[in-house]
Design a protein around this nucleic acid. Sequence first.
DNA 1: GGACACCTTTGACTAAAGTCAAAGAAATAT
DNA 2: ATATTTCTTTGACTTTAGTCAAAGGTGTCC
Lengths: 296, 296
Amino acid sequence: MEPVSATDVAALRRFNRYFTRRIGVLDDHYLGQDRPLGEARLLFEIARHPAGVPLRTLRAQLDLDAGYLSRMTKSLQSNGLVRLAVHPDDSRLRTVELTAAGRTEVAEQNRRADALAAGLIDGLTGDQRTRLTEAVDTAQRLLRLAAITVDPVDGGSPDARACLDAYAADIGARFPEGFDRAALVSPQEVSGAAGAFFVAYEEGRPVGCGALRRQPDGVGEIRHVWVSPDARRLGLARRILGALEREAAARGLDVVRLDTHAVLTEAQAMYRACGYREIPAYDDNVYAAFWFEKRV
Amino acid sequence: MEPVSATDVAALRRFNRYFTRRIGVLDDHYLGQDRPLGEARLLFEIARHPAGVPLRTLRAQLDLDAGYLSRMTKSLQSNGLVRLAVHPDDSRLRTVELTAAGRTEVAEQNRRADALAAGLIDGLTGDQRTRLTEAVDTAQRLLRLAAITVDPVDGGSPDARACLDAYAADIGARFPEGFDRAALVSPQEVSGAAGAFFVAYEEGRPVGCGALRRQPDGVGEIRHVWVSPDARRLGLARRILGALEREAAARGLDVVRLDTHAVLTEAQAMYRACGYREIPAYDDNVYAAFWFEKRV
DNA sequence: GGACACCTTTGACTAAAGTCAAAGAAATAT
DNA sequence: ATATTTCTTTGACTTTAGTCAAAGGTGTCC
């Protein structure tokens, strides 16, 4: 990994100072209105879970002390904004959800936040606003990508299985012929000397995966490169691919191959852009329409 | 002004949430270390003024209560980080400056903040970091521009005079032949029916100006369009120009003219891009090399 | 020279934010 | 069935943040 240049660090810090001063502060202080900031934040977090959320989840998400959370919740409850209930599956847990009054208050706060954000940019022309939106979207995508790690995990681990389940459901919906889970790699094929399995994590949550499998002829096969829908367009597939290629090289596999389905046109374009060459069919995978190869 | 689209508002709020959670919070909480956040912020603000700064300036900049500020300053002083002194010109004022220990602590905090920022982006490739830097710079420029207002002021007001002083010094340094302040418009020429003067304000500070003067032949002349060096590349000159053109139109001046110096090539390009046509000399201004006109 | 305004300090508060530990109820492990 | 763990509540704090008003020293204006 290249060292980070001082210019980039300075730009990020400069932006951070400006942005938090201009916007972050506003957001926080105006919004709570007569409610303490902590309670306002808690209320917002509760609102993100429409069906009711256990206190322990809130505690983890907001990183709060149990006693502190308990008191703030009670305060919201006594204001009639939230309702507490015992968790149906585990009576140790309490779940909390918004009342109608709570929903009204959150909606009102959202309205105010929208007005605040609109006020921040209403001096710009439509074109300038579009450029601002593009710039913040780009920045957010890159910051998210930077926060994602791609780690080797056991092919049988729950995270790996969860990714493959999501992958199977995803392509099953996209392939006209559906998808049979029997075509997935088995945990043994991607463990130990036989291969490797990588999972991409964003803030602890698996958001993508990729498998490498050693083939009998001493070539590495890349399979199941997948990115969760909410982590797409970040450049994550390339990162996963890069990790798999480095792993192959480290195992002395000089060449990697993969196949892809006819409908996955973006994937095909990505493989080409990453230096893969189309080759003749090397297997009889019923889902494959294109076969690629790269020397790593 | 066009209404702000919900898409743009949503993008800004989405970014704000993500950014403050990922970065703002980090910055604040990690950085202060064992020092309360308020004191850490105060220390940073003091560090921005190397020669010592009056308390009243800090109070204005950080929007603090006088008593609160006094106590925090005393706390920093008792920790040996700052030194208090009576202001040389006004004994009512106290100035505060960092001690060597204070400078060490600020440097250490800066080092930590740099490391934090570097850690946030070290997973990106050099190209991705460059794109991130460009995106945050663009966002910051547009947010600054959005926060700037262009207001009509009296041509003789202190802000107008300050802008013209800065303008004269600026072009005096750029014109090979220097600049004689006698060529500036007089306050009467840009007041009342005779003309108008606009000042651009960023957070209360004048950062640009422009004058409109009615000429004997019923044409408006635009003069002294200037933007402070630290507010350039935001698109502010165009905004000032637009304000002057609208003012001219409102006064029934259908045509505006201006002249410009040979060395101000960016200005010439801007006038052309804003719809100005080059015309023959309409005056004998010794500093002018090009003359432009636009129907408004 | 006197009235008035300005700036800082100090005392006396309040509210919010956050911490820690004990206790009680419920689930899980052995 | 018992011990252990998990989760929430409650009590008893501390620290930080912030406000208000009185008081005292200095400048400024007339």
